[in-house]
Design a protein around this nucleic acid. Structure first.
Length: 274
DNA sequence: CGCTCGGCCTGTGCGC
DNA sequence: TGCGCACAGGCCGAGC
C-alpha cells in the first residue's frame, strides 16, 4: 500500500501533531500486529513516554521517544496511522489506540491486518531484518546513476522485479515503479542487464522525478491511503499508466495495457515502453 | 546465490 | 440478489 511518498506524507502531517506530546495510555485491540512484544509489555513501556521526533526509512515510519525508545511501524497494504480528536470513536478496523496528553488520540487502523509494529530501543534497530537491510533511497546522495548501473549489471531478472526489491532501492512500490518505467520508456519485463547507459540514466531521472512528484502531491490515494490527518493525496490525478488499462497514453496516443510481472498487476504502454 | 511463487488477511468489484 | 472468483499499494520464506 503506502510507498515512500505516502509514508513521508504521513510523517510530515503527523509530526507537528505528535512531537513533544506524551503518550498517556495505549489500547491494543489486535495484539498479533505487535511482532516483538506482548501487548501488556507494549502498553507499559509506552505509557508516560514523550514523542521526540518522527522519522522515515523506506516505507517504515519511526516514532522516536525519550529514553531511546522507538516505535517502528510498517503499514504494508492497508495500514493507516492518523491523528483524531477526543470525540472520535474507533471503528471495527481500529487496531491500536494511543492516547495523548492533550486528550487527542492516534489511531492505528488496518483492514487486512498485514501491518507490522515493533517496539525497540535505539540500539536494537539494526536487529530488525527488513529495516536494517534497506537499500539507498531515491532523492538522496546514496542513490546515483552509477549505483543503479552497478545494481542492474549482470542481473537476469526483470527490471520491475529488481525495482520492487527493497534491499536494492528503498521505498519504491507497484505504483511508482510502473510510473517510473513509463516515464523512462521501459517495458517492465526488460531483463535488468540489457538496459543501456542512456536508459539507466532515464530510469534514474524518472524514479527521482516520480517520487518527488508523489511527495509534492501528498501521495496517491488509489483506495485506502490517507495521510496523518485523514486526508487523501492527489497524485492519482497525475498518473500516466497505473490503473489506466484501456485508456490512452498521453505520451504517444497508444492504448495502456496491463500484464502480470513479478507477480504484480503492471500497467504500461506497449507503444512507447520497450 | 538469484529468482519465482505462495502465504499472510480481509474487503471490493466483477461476471454469471 | 447471490455466489464464486480475481484482485488489492508489501514482504518473507520455501523451493527450484
Amino acid at each position: 500500500m503506502p510507498e515512500l511518498p505516502e509514508v513521508e506524507t504521513i510523517r510530515r502531517t503527523l509530526a507537528p501533531l505528535l512531537e513533544h506530546r506524551t503518550i498517556t495510555r495505549v489500547e491494543v485491540l489486535l495484539p498479533r500486529l505487535l511482532k516483538n512484544t506482548a501487548a501488556p509489555d507494549f502498553c507499559q513501556r509506552l505509557a508516560g513516554r514523550r514523542i521526540v521526533a518522527l522519522a522515515r526509512r523506506g516505507k517504515y515510519l519511526l516514532l522516536n521517544f525519550d529514553q531511546s525508545l522507538v516505535l517502528v511501524v510498517h503499514l504494508r497494504m492497508t495500514g493507516r496511522l492518523y491523528h483524531v480528536t477526543e470525540e472520535t470513536e474507533p471503528d471495527r478496523f481500529t487496531r491500536i489506540i494511543f492516547y495523548l496528553d492533550n486528550g487527542h488520540k492516534l489511531f492505528y487502523a488496518d483492514v487486512r491486518t498485514l501491518g507490522t509494529i515493533f517496539l525497540v530501543n535505539q540500539d536494537e534497530l539494526n536487529g530488525l531484518p527488513g529495516l536494517a537491510s534497506l537499500g539507498p533511497e531515491p532523492l538522496t546522495s546514496a542513490f546515483t546513476p552509477a549505483y543503479l548501473q552497478q545494481l542492474l549489471a549482470g542481473r537476469r531478472g526483470k527490471i520491475k522485479a529488481v525495482l520492487l526489491n527493497q534491499h536494492y532501492i528503498a521505498g519504491l512500490g507497484n505504483i511508482y515503479i510502473d510510473e517510473s518505467l513509463h516515464e523512462a520508456g521501459l517495458d517492465p519485463e526488460r531483463p535488468a542487464a540489457t538496459l543501456t547507459a542512456a536508459e539507466i540514466q532515464r530510469l534514474y531521472n524518472a524514479i527521482n522525478a516520480v517520487i518527488a512528484a508523489g511527495i509534492a502531491d501528498g501521495g496517491t490515494t488509489f483506495r485506502d491511503y490517507r495521510d496523518g490527518t485523514g486526508h487523501s493525496g492527489s497524485h492519482q490525478r497525475h498518473l500516466g499508466v497505473y490503473g489506466r488499462e484501456g485508456e490512452i497514453c498521453a505520451e504517444c496516443g497508444g492504448m495502456i495495457a496491463r500484464k502480470v510481472v513479478a507477480g504484480r498487476g503492471s500497467y504500461y504502454c506497449p507503444h512507447c515502453q520497450h
